[in-house]
Design a binder for these strands. Structure first.
Length: 818
DNA sequence: GTGCCTCGGGG
DNA sequence: GTGTACGAGGCAC
C-alpha cells in the first residue's frame, strides 16, 4: 500500500546503494517533521550530437570501456529531437548506470569520429534530478511510497514518485547560529593546529548558550562551563543534534568557524558526524574553503552578503561590524580581543568575552533572518538549493537559471568553454556605454529621464541571443544592429529566442509584482519586495553574462550589440531632446539630464510620451525627477577618464549630491562641512557671493583657530601591517606611535590624526587628537589640502578662483567681519 | 598598462 | 562529485 506525504525539500544528495544511485531529499513535511525522501529511479544521462549523416547508435550501444579494472557501459540510448541554439537537431540521449560513469564514458567518446559534440555531461546528478522533475527546493512536493528503515537520523520515506505540489513555500526554517572565540596569544594569530577554541556560542530565537572550558564567577545565565575543549566539542554536537536546525549559519563560517572546529575535533579524535546520514562535516579546501553538512544547510551569511547583496550596500568592508551596522543598525561589542588570551591565561573573569561571543552569533542569526526572504526568492527562481545559492555569484546564477529553463524550450545546453577558449575570450574587449560630458555650470529647472532596465529591455526587444543572431531566415530584410564598426549583426525577426523570452519574462514578472506591492502588508511586502529585487538583479546580469568569458551561453557579438543599441537609444533621445528645444546637460549610459529653458514640465512629459511611442517592446523612457537647479563640475580623475560630479536640488529643497568626495572618510569634517554648505547656499539660496563669503569665513576661522579640534581630525584606515608600508604617510606614522604606546593596531584599524603646525614634514607633525593641547593644528595645511580642494572646482564653475577664496579682507583681519 | 600576488572574512 | 571555482587592489616591471 502506497502512502502519500507532502514535504518541502531543503537539501539534496545521492548515494550509491546496491549499485544504484539513490536520490536523498532532506526536508520538512507539511506538518513540520524532518524527513528524508529517497528515490532510486532516476537514471544518469547526457547527450551526444552526431555529425550530420553519421549513425553512431550501434557503436554507442556496444561501447565497453575498461579502466582500472572496472567496466563502464552505456545502458540505453534514445534518439531524441532537440534544439541547439534554436535550431532543430537530432541527438542521442545516452544513459549510464552511475553518475560517475559519465565522465569516464564521455571523455572516451571524444575519440569517436562520428560525434559532433557531447553535451550536458557535467550537470551534477542531483541538480539534473531537480531540473528534470521540476522540483524546486523550499517548494511543496508530494511523494508516493512508504516509510521504511534506513540508516539516517530522520525518518526515511522511499518514494516511487515525487512531484511538485502547488506553490506553497517553506518560509520559516529553523536557524541556529554558531560563533567561536579562539586562543590567540600573538597578535591576530589564527592557528587551529596550535591554539584551542576557548568558547563557542550557539544562538537561535529560543536558544542561547556560550560554552567555556574554564570556570569563573558569572551572572550570565547562558554561560555553561565544561571541563575541556573536547567536552566543548561534544556540546556543540549535542546542541545541533537536539535543536535539529534546518540551517546552521555563521559569519565566514565556511572559511573559519567550521574548519577550525573540524581541526580541533580531529585533535581529540572526535567524529563530527553531524550529517543526517551520519556523514562528517566536510571541509573542502580549494581556492576558497567550503564547509558542508549533509541534510543541514550550512549558510555562510558573510559569503552571501559579499556575493549577492554587496552591490546594494554602502559599506566597502564586509566585516561583521560594518555589515550589521548597516543592515541591522546593531554593532559588535567593543572588546579588545588581545586581552582574551591574557585573561584566559590569568584565569580572570571572561564575562565580557562571553557577551561578545554570543552577540556575534546573534548578529549572524539576525542577518540570516533578515536576508531569508531574498535567499528564499533566489532559490525559487533558480531552483538551486540554499547551499548553492549561497556560494554562487551572479553569472553562475544566470547560468543555472538558463540550465533550469532549457528543457522547457527543448534546448540542449552549450558546453562550458575549455581553458584555451577562456584564454581567448579573456583577451576580447568591446565598446561600452555612451557618456555625454556635462558642460560645467549652474543650471535651472532640470528634468531627468532614464531608460528603465536598459540592457535587459534591449535584449528582450531586439531578440538578442545565440539562437537568433545572424539567422538564415532574416538575412535579406533584417534590420542591422547599430554597430559603429559596421559589423553586420542582426537578430531574427520571426522567432523569439530562448534568452530574450526568458529576460522578457523576468521583466514582466517584476513589473507585475511592483504593481501588486503598492498595497501590501509588511510581511507580504518583504517577500514580494525581495522577489522583485532578485528579478531585477537577475535580469540585469544577463548582459554581463553574455560577455562573461566562462559562460556557456557566451557571445561577445550579443554583448557588443547590446551596448551598441544602448548607445544608439541614448544618443537618439539626446538628439530628439535637442531638436525639441531642450538643452541636454548630461547623460550617462541610460539617463538624460536636460534643462527646460523656455519649455515647461508638461512639454517634457509630452516629449517622453512621444519618445516612448517609438520604442520597441518593453523599452521605456521613465521620468526620474525634476530639479529646481543643479551644478555640474567636470573633473578628470581615475583610470576611467572623466568621472562626473553633480549636485541637484529638488522641489522640496532636498539636495542630491553625486560623485563629490564629501563622503570620503579621509577628509576632515570641516572639509566635508564646507563642501555641503557651499553647495546648499548655491543651490538653495542661489547666492554665489554668500557662498564665497562663507568659504572665506571658514578659511579665516581656521587661521584664527576658531574651528574646534574635532573638526580637523582626519580618518584613514590602515590597509596593512605598519612594517609593510614603504610609503609612510601620516597615518602610518601615527599608527607607529600608537603601537609604541602598546596599543594594538593592524590592518583595518582606523587611524585618527591631526596635523600640527611646524616646519617639519607632515608625518612628523601628525598626532593623535588626544595628544593635542589646544588648537595648535596647522591652519595652512587644512586650508590648502582640505577646505580649498573640497570647494575649488565648485567655485571655478561659478567663475571664482582659489585666490578669491584666500584673499583676506582687511576688516576680517582686524576682527569680526561677520 | 600588464601581469603576478595577496587578501578578504575570521581571533 | 556527471564540477569548479573568485575578484579587487596593490605592487613590480
Amino acid at each position: 500500500m502506497a502512502d502519500k506525504i507532502r514535504f518541502f525539500p531543503l537539501d539534496v544528495m545521492y548515494k550509491v546503494i546496491d549499485e544504484k544511485p539513490v536520490i536523498h531529499l532532506f526536508g520538512r513535511t507539511a506538518d513540520n517533521k524532518q524527513v528524508c525522501v529517497l528515490y532510486d529511479n532516476f537514471e544518469p544521462y547526457f547527450y551526444v550530437i552526431p555529425k550530420k549523416g553519421s549513425d553512431i547508435t550501434e557503436q554507442l550501444k556496444n561501447l565497453k570501456i575498461t579502466k582500472n579494472g572496472q567496466t563502464y557501459t552505456i545502458t540505453k540510448v534514445e534518439a531524441v529531437k532537440k534544439k541547439h541554439f534554436g535550431r532543430d537537431i537530432d541527438a542521442i540521449k545516452v544513459f549510464t548506470k552511475l553518475p560517475g560513469d559519465i565522465p569516464v564514458i564521455s571523455s572516451e567518446l571524444r575519440a569517436l569520429s562520428g560525434i559532433e559534440s557531447i553535451n550536458e555531461n557535467d550537470i551534477l546528478f542531483t541538480r539534473r534530478f531537480l531540473i528534470d522533475n521540476n522540483i524546486v527546493p523550499l517548494t511543496l512536493c508530494e511523494a508516493e511510497g512508504s516509510f521504511g528503515p534506513q540508516n539516517l537520523k530522520v525518518p526515511a520515506f522511499k518514494a516511487e514518485k515525487i512531484e511538485p505540489f502547488g506553490t506553497e513555500t517553506f518560509l520559516k526554517p529553523r536557524i541556529l547560529s554558531v560563533d567561536i572565540e579562539t586562543y590567540a596569544p600573538l597578535y591576530k594569530e589564527i592557528a587551529p593546529e596550535k591554539n584551542p577554541i576557548i568558547m563557542l556560542s550557539l544562538y537561535a530565537k529560543d536558544f542561547q548558550k556560550v560554552f567555556v572550558w574554564k570556570r569563573f564567577k558569572t551572572n550570565l545565565d547562558y554561560v555553561e562551563f565544561v571541563d575541556s575543549e573536547s567536552e566543548l566539542m561534544d556540546k556543540f554536537k549535542d546542541v545541533i543534534e537536539s535543536y535539529k536546525p534546518d540551517i546552521l549559519t555563521g559569519y565566514f563560517s565556511d572559511g573559519f568557524d567550521l574548519p577550525y572546529i573540524k581541526v580541533r575535533a580531529g585533535k581529540y579524535k572526535i567524529k563530527l558526524d553531524l550529517g543526517l546520514d551520519f556523514s562528517e562535516l566536510k571541509v573542502s579546501k580549494g581556492k576558497v574553503t567550503t564547509s558542508q553538512i549533509t541534510g543541514i544547510i550550512h549558510l555562510d551569511i558573510f559569503k552571501f552578503i559579499r556575493k549577492v547583496i554587496s552591490g546594494t550596500l554602502e559599506t566597502e568592508t564586509y566585516n561583521l561590524n560594518a555589515v550589521a551596522s548597516e543592515l541591522l543598525g546593531e554593532k559588535k561589542y567593543d572588546v579588545d580581543l588581545n586581552e582574551l588570551s591574557k585573561a584566559w591565561d590569568n584565569e580572570t573573569e571572561l564575562n565580557e568575552f562571553c557577551e561578545y561571543n554570543l552577540n556575534d552569533a546573534r548578529l549572524s542569526y539576525n542577518l540570516a533572518e533578515k536576508l531569508m526572504p531574498t535567499i528564499i526568492e533566489m532559490v525559487k527562481i533558480t531552483g538551486l538549493t540554499i547551499y548553492d545559492v549561497n556560494r554562487m555569484g551572479f553569472s553562475q546564477l544566470v547560468e543555472w537559471y538558463l540550465l533550469r529553463q532549457a528543457p522547457n524550450f527543448n534546448e540542449i545546453a552549450p558546453n562550458r568553454p575549455s581553458n584555451d577558449e577562456i584564454m581567448k575570450r579573456r583577451l576580447q574587449t568591446y565598446k561600452g556605454a555612451f557618456v555625454f560630458e556635462p558642460k560645467p555650470g549652474l543650471y535651472d529647472n532640470i528634468v531627468v529621464f532614464d531608460y528603465r532596465s536598459l540592457y535587459p529591455t534591449i535584449i528582450g526587444s531586439h531578440n538578442i541571443g545565440l539562437g537568433t543572431i545572424n539567422c538564415g531566415c532574416c538575412e535579406e530584410e533584417a534590420k542591422l544592429a547599430p554597430m559603429e564598426d559596421n559589423k553586420k549583426i542582426w537578430f531574427c525577426s520571426k522567432k523569439k529566442g530562448f534568452i530574450p523570452t526568458l529576460i522578457e519574462d523576468l521583466i514582466t514578472r517584476r513589473t507585475r509584482i511592483k504593481e501588486i506591492i503598492k498595497d501590501q502588508t509588511d510581511e507580504k511586502f518583504a517577500i514580494l519586495d525581495a522577489r522583485q529585487n532578485i528579478l531585477k538583479l537577475l535580469a540585469n546580469s544577463f548582459y554581463g553574462y553574455l560577455g562573461f568569458f566562462a559562460a556557456r551561453w557566451y557571445s561577445i557579438e550579443c554583448a557588443q550589440a547590446t551596448t551598441a543599441f544602448g548607445r544608439y537609444y541614448i544618443k537618439d533621445v539626446i538628439e530628439k531632446a535637442e531638436k525639441s528645444g531642450f538643452k541636454v546637460l548630461y547623460s550617462d549610459t541610460d539617463s538624460i539630464f536636460m534643462a527646460l529653458g523656455e519649455k515647461t514640465k508638461q512639454d517634457a512629459e509630452k516629449f517622453s510620451e512621444k519618445v516612448n511611442q517609438e520604442l520597441p517592446g518593453l523599452m521605456e523612457l521613465e521620468f526620474e525627477g525634476f530639479y529646481r537647479a543643479g551644478i555640474f563640475v567636470s573633473a578628470k580623475m581615475g583610470a576611467y577618464g572623466a568621472k562626473k560630479k553633480y549636485a541637484l536640488i529638488d522641489e522640496n529643497g532636498m539636495l542630491k549630491i553625486k560623485g563629490f568626495e564629501s563622503v570620503r572618510r579621509n577628509w576632515s569634517m570641516i572639509a566635508k562641512e564646507v563642501q555641503e554648505k557651499v553647495l546648499a547656499i548655491i543651490l538653495k539660496e542661489r547666492d554665489n557671493e554668500k557662498a564665497v563669503e562663507y568659504a572665506k569665513k571658514v578659511v579665516d576661522d581656521l587661521k584664527n583657530k576658531k574651528i574646534p579640534l574635532e573638526k580637523v581630525i582626519i580618518h584613514t584606515q590602515l590597509q596593512k601591517e605598519i612594517s609593510e608600508y614603504d610609503a609612510r604617510g601620516p597615518h602610518v606614522a601615527v599608527a607607529q606611535r600608537l603601537k609604541n604606546q602598546g596599543v594594538n593596531v593592524g590592518p583595518g584599524s582606523m587611524i585618527r590624526f591631526v596635523v600640527l603646525q611646524g616646519s617639519d614634514i607632515i608625518r612628523n607633525r601628525s598626532r593623535l587628537p588626544e595628544e593635542v593641547k589646544g588648537n595648535n593644528y596647522d591652519a595652512d595645511y587644512y586650508i590648502n589640502n582640505q577646505v580649498i580642494p573640497a570647494v575649488e572646482r565648485i567655485f571655478n564653475v561659478l567663475g571664482y578662483t582659489k585666490e578669491d577664496l584666500l584673499e583676506i579682507k582687511e576688516q576680517t583681519k582686524l576682527g569680526g567681519y561677520f
